[in-house]
């Protein structure tokens, strides 16, 4: 029996340097702004890469939807919501599904030593799986923490596909917000239309921190002074609310616990 042929068609601008940066991401060797910017661009370009089989042409984006999202997303979220300690237990759940993606990729006959470009497809599927799975784990962590902290909010139901793909993840005191991991936030960058974004960052290469990015109008509802900040110093200025002006946009960044404290005060005054 002969092995069915497959072929990978990459966008013209996806050269060996782009491939090396994808490998650099997998190897944990992205250092500095330029390396990260190139990695995001590389994964942008891979959206348009195509797998050609005897059955047809499929973009990597379509394959992610068909092979990963449609087959694994609901099962992952179902298990995620049963975890007692999401922060501690969800990485193991994420990695179990990541290994399932590798098995699925192999079973479909796409793991081929004579088509090394197919490794880019697997890299792409794992990258987006990481963005999806880590993103929803973080969202569940935040929802549980807000509930435990006494913050009143309305959140979408992750197990309901219709609600899961709602325009915003949650509403707090009439303000619409999203919960985002930093990689997904940057990769799927879009106009910042919500009032606030709860996000997780890594500071100084190792310490993780939770912060909230707000539009100035949303900050005005919460009320309070800000200090003028700069991108280079923002990590050191937190937890104080920091106002940044950059690339024509003005935003307020505040430590997550400080934001919660102010929201609780706002909601207490409203009662």
């Amino acid at each position: 029996m002969t092995t069915p042929s497959i072929q990978i068609q990459l966008p013209a601008s996806f050269g060996p340097d782009r491939e090396r940066v994808v490998i650099g991401y997998l190897a944990g060797r992205l250092y500095g702004r330029d390396a990260w910017a190139k990695a995001f661009e590389a994964f942008d370009l891979l959206d348009q890469a195509v797998l050609v089989t005897a059955r047809g042409y499929y973009t990597f984006r379509t394959l992610y939807q068909q092979v990963v999202d449609r087959l694994m997303a609901d099962a992952y979220l179902g298990e995620l919501l049963t975890l007692r300690d999401v922060e501690q237990q969800s990485p193991a759940l994420w990695s179990r599904f990541a290994r399932r993606i590798i098995s699925e990729f192999t079973q479909r006959g796409w793991r081929r030593s004579d088509v090394p470009e197919a490794r880019l497809l697997l890299s792409y599927l794992l990258y987006w799986w990481g963005a999806f799975a880590r993103g929803y784990a973080f969202e569940v962590e935040v929802f549980r923490d807000l509930r435990n902290s006494g913050v009143q909010f309305q959140a979408h139901n992750l197990l309901d596909r219709q609600q899961r793909y709602s325009p915003s993840d949650l509403a707090v005191s009439g303000m619409a917000g999203d919960v985002k991991t930093s990689i997904y936030f940057v990769q799927a960058a879009a106009p910042l239309e919500h009032d606030f974004y709860i996000m997780r960052l890594v500071a100084r290469g190792r310490t993780h921190m939770l912060a909230v990015l707000l539009k100035p109008a949303a900050w005005d509802i919460i009320d309070g002074d800000t200090v003028l900040g700069h991108l280079d110093t923002i990590v050191d200025q937190l937890p104080a609310p920091v106002r940044i002006r950059h690339r024509g946009q003005e935003l307020v960044v505040v430590d997550y616990d400080e934001w919660k404290r102010r929201i609780l005060r706002l909601q207490g005054e409203a009662q």
């Binding site: 702004r33 910017a37 990541a98 940057v186 890594v202 950059h246 946009q249």
Partner: peptide
């Protein structure tokens, strides 16, 4: 990835977000 948060360093996050 299972042992870390896999996040973008804060020092470059805001610039890349607003640029993109």
């Amino acid at each position: 990835e299972a042992a870390s948060y896999g996040e973008v360093p804060a020092e470059i996050f805001f610039d890349l977000l607003l640029e993109r």
